[in-house]
Each structure stands twice: as C-alpha cells, then as structure tokens.
Design a protein around this nucleic acid. Structure first.
Lengths: 296, 296
DNA sequence: TTATTCGTTCGCTAAAATAGAACGATAGGT
DNA sequence: ACCTATCGTTCTATTTTAGCGAACGAATAA
C-alpha cells in the first residue's frame, strides 16, 4: 500500500463523523466533487471501500468503522495541537462524562469532586439512558460513562468496566417512623412503600427480601430515577428502598432515617471507558481517586 | 492560523525524531530542499520557529518539543493504522521497557511476568544508564522505564513515577558462613565484604549502618550492577549487601543465606511514564498487576 | 410524474510539492 | 590558516495533486 495520505484521512474523518458528504463539504468550504474524489482516492490506496453507497447516502463499512476509530484518535489530538498553537495555551479538552439518567446525583457528585475542587478542567455531564450512552462512548463522544450496569469487558469488545463503588440497599424511613426496629418484624406489615422501578435489579432484590420475610408491602409509588425516588422518599411519608447515598443530605439533616440494609443487596457503580482511546489526562486520576475513595 | 497541514507536520515529526534533515530526506526518498521548504512552511503557518538553526544542525525549540509530543501521538497511531491496513491484523505495537542497567534482573523478570505468560504482546527490554533512559522516554522511544530513583512528578514535568515495590537491604552470606548470628556482633568484624558501588544510595545506607555499629568492613569488591553483585556474592565467598531478590535463586538453593535486613534501608522500584503519552494498551494492566503483586 | 437531494464522473485550471543547482555557514582535518 | 566535506537554505523550473464546475444518475419526497 502506498503511504497513507493524512489529508484524505482527515476528510474521511469529517465525513464519517457527520455521515453526510454534502454538509461536510460546505463546512470545509469545499465542493462535493472534490471531497468525493479525495475519499475515493483514500479507498483506492487502501484497496477496500470505507463506505457502502446505499441509496444516496454513505454508510460506514466494518473496515470504515475501524479506520474511523484511529482517525478519531489522530485528529482529536491534532485539533488539540491546533488550539494550542493558535491560542498559546495548552488547552485541556473538556472531559465528557456520560451519566445514566437514573443514577444518584449524589454519587456522581462524589465522583466529580476532584474536578470541582481543582478548577482547571472543564467537564460536561451528559445524562442519557444506557443504550444511548453506549453509542456515544463507542463514537468517541464521551470519555467515560458512569452506570450501574456492568458491561462485558475484554480486548475484542473495545471497552472495559471498572467497579468504583458498591452501595448497600437500605430501607429509609421518614423521621416519624424512626421508631421502627432495625430488623423486619410485624410492624413493617402495615407500612406503605416507595421502591425502585420494576426493571431495576434493586427492585428484584427487594422482592426477594419480601418473599423471605413474608412481607407484603403496599407499594404506593415506584420510580427508576434515583432523583425522583429521593423526592418520593422525602415527601411521601412512606418507607423507601434505595442506596443510602441517594438521600445523603436528608439523612444528615435527620429528615429521613436509615433503618437497616437489605442483606446481600447492592447497587454497583461502574466507570466504563474505551480500551483503545486516547485517555483524557485527568480521567486516570479521577478513576484512581474514586477507587481509593471507596476503600476509605 | 491557517488549518494545520498534516503532511508538513508529518515531515516535521520525522525530522525532529531523527534530528537530521539530510538523513530523513533520503529515508523519505525526498530531496533536502523539498523537506527544508515544507518545514519552513509549517513554521510559517504556525508563526514561530520549531527549530533553532545552530551551526549546521537543527535543534528543537521549546515549542518544537511541545509540537513533537503531539506529532508523536498522532503519527504513532497513524503508523499503527497503516500496518493494520496493509497486513489486515490489528497490530499491538511492541511494548518498550527501559530498564536501569544496574537493576536486579529478577525484579524486572517479576515485573514482566504477565507478558511472558500471555504471549500476545511483543516487548523489548532496553537496559541503559539513568540519564539515557530519561532521554529515551522523553523522546517517546520508551513506554515505561523501571528504575530505583524517583523522578519529580507533576503535570509540568511531563512524567510521573509510580512506586512498584520496595525491597529491604539484606546481608547475604555464603553457606559456609551460615553460622553467623542474625545481628551484628564481633564475629562480623573479621569478615570480607562485597557491596554496592559508591554512587548508590544502597551503599550510603550500608556505610551509615557500619558507622552505627562501629563495623569496619574489609571491602574486597564493589559493583553498581546488580547482576555483577550477584555473581560476586556467589563466587567470592564474602559477605554481600544487596536486596534479597537479586539472589533469589541462590537463597532458594541454599548456596547463599540471608543473615538479616539492614534497618530502614530499602531499595525502591519505580515505574516512570510520560503523563501525556498515548498509553500502550497493555501497560496499564502491567502496572496494576505489579502494584497488586507487591501488596500480596 | 416531477422536483429535489445526494453522490459520482469528467475535463479543465489553480495550487502545491518537488527536484536540481547554487549558495552560505560550520566543523574537522592537515 | 587553509582546504574540504557536510548540512541546511534559497531560487527557479517542472511535475504532481487538489479543487471547481458542469453534467450525470440514482434515490427519495411531493
């Protein structure tokens, strides 16, 4: 193969990211024809197509996706360099953190604490459902995602999960029910409950617990979103099931009280990153800080 | 600034790495003049010189070094892509490990053990004196260096040290002296010794120990190199001062015997990496494995 | 069906990269 | 001190590459 033409590759990068040749051409102040020709040339030197021409649109081939991954690393770094050269300041790019919508904001807050203290890094928090997060990560739109679901690790998969923390699942009571005992007895039968949504593994753990103790809870509300669950726990006057970190502030103020932990029921928090991506310089520190933080 | 020309940058990369325009030109099958012109153009678009023309040679400016760091990331990844495209296999580049010449090979062996077990990564061991290692690392010729000297950490410095292990400094005796007591007494006064070289911090620790115990050792040999020290310990019949790991095999076979550790004298082993370098995919695992290994 | 959008192909032109020769500066040898 | 080989720069002519615009075809929307 002839030597790779980095300008061809650059055009490919822009087009592949955008998924649209015409729009990219105008962004680059370039004619369609020029762009089309340059990309065909790249495909010619490689010897294989990078796009499938399906209908009147361009769809990446398998190889195209692979090449895009490399191009992403290459030109992301290149853009950084250009910014450095034009501004004179070594710009640390914004750290993009994807967060599962339903996760506890308190946990996220704890995770990003090192960033808010040292003010030298911009970061973006992007809350999305799991599937979208995975897509964004795969497309290099995110540096890391925080989620409670472990993803398959391994070199071939392309991403790796790291367990950051695990939180016991607790039974939280409003202060007027603070007298309830620290283990299940008959007094819990009369109570109304607020619990995680049916899809959640936390809910499954709670159901199992109920079966074991022959508890027949009157469930008055359920929610996937931890922020929502927190509000429900605070305002409903009912018992609630959730990791204690979710209502950290309310526990501290005495508005809510933790009665006990469910045995062997945990919510796990994972950080998922791409294995072969250029790592954001602050991310490693963040992950490590978080790791040591949980051990303390 | 006009858009960065990646071909100019590529040429810059090659020249800066080589440090010689003429040689690079012939490698690229290009005339000197062309290469010279392209690099001046790059400097022109940037607006500042990347090289100082000192005498008849090119020396990187401060800015040049910075740009080289970026270029290294960019084109190293580009080369990987080219290899992938021409060979069809996603080549994991060889992991280059710099080792301080005088370090114990047993320690290095333990560090690279994960690599020798999984056979999927090529690696190179490069033994050099400290100053050369630092240079090679700074020039991206190495992924990591293993040394017993800590280097200043910090973002501005550009590299970071990680403590991998610490080894007590021991007094090693040949089996015929196995009867010597496990603490210093008069019987140690009559002995001949083999010790680390005068430049070493280990030697300093030993000297301090001698002063404390009013020991006046008869030093028959000294050596910087741990491998050499090992041979001396084995063959001289004298007492020796070194970390026990150096003569691990001889201790196991009973050929040598450890008498005692010097109090508060340690050899530290550090892994030093560049902070802003694209990290070799296997390096993180290696460092982590080593870290957990030492805790066990 | 007709108009519109999107990508490709084909000449032609403009821009760029490159070779070669001439030059200046420097380091090394005698 | 003088020659000589080495290294990088500058200038001009030439080749190579990139890019524009128009024409085209195929797919989608109205």
């Amino acid at each position: 193969m002839a030597r790779l033409n980095y300008h061809h590759l650059y055009y490919f990068w822009r087009v592949a990211k955008q998924g649209n040749l015409t729009a990219t051409a105008s962004q680059l102040a370039l004619s369609q024809s020029a762009l089309s020709a340059q990309i065909s040339q790249l495909e010619h030197t490689i010897g294989q197509p990078l796009f499938n021409r399906v209908g009147r649109s361009l769809v990446l081939t398998e190889l195209g996706r692979t090449v895009l991954n490399y191009a992403e690393d290459i030109y992301q770094r290149g853009e950084e360099l250009q910014q450095l050269l034009s501004q004179g300041t070594p710009t640390v790019p914004s750290l993009k953190i994807g967060v599962l919508s339903s996760m506890s904001r308190n946990f996220v807050d704890a995770f990003i604490k090192p960033l808010t203290q040292g003010l030298d890094v911009h970061f973006q928090l992007i809350a999305r459902p799991q599937s979208e997060l995975e897509q964004l990560l795969a497309h290099h739109q995110l540096d890391v995602i925080l989620t409670n679901r472990e993803l398959a690790s391994g070199d071939d998969v392309g991403w790796q999960s790291q367990l950051l923390a695990r939180q016991a699942l607790s039974v939280i009571a409003p202060s007027r029910l603070a007298h309830l005992p620290a283990e299940v007895d008959a007094s819990y039968q009369q109570q109304r409950w607020v619990v995680p949504g049916a899809a959640s593994p936390l809910r499954a753990a709670f159901e199992f617990f109920c079966t074991q103790h022959q508890l027949r809870p009157e469930i008055i509300a359920e929610a996937d979103d931890m922020a929502m669950l927190r509000l429900l726990a605070r305002d409903s006057g009912a018992l609630a099931v959730m990791p204690a970190v979710v209502v950290r502030d309310e526990l501290q103020s005495g508005l809510l009280v933790k009665r006990f932990d469910l045995p062997n029921a945990f919510e796990n928090f994972y950080a998922v990153t791409l294995t072969r991506k250029y790592q954001h310089p602050r991310l490693a520190e963040l992950l490590q800080a978080s790791y040591f933080g949980t051990l303390r």
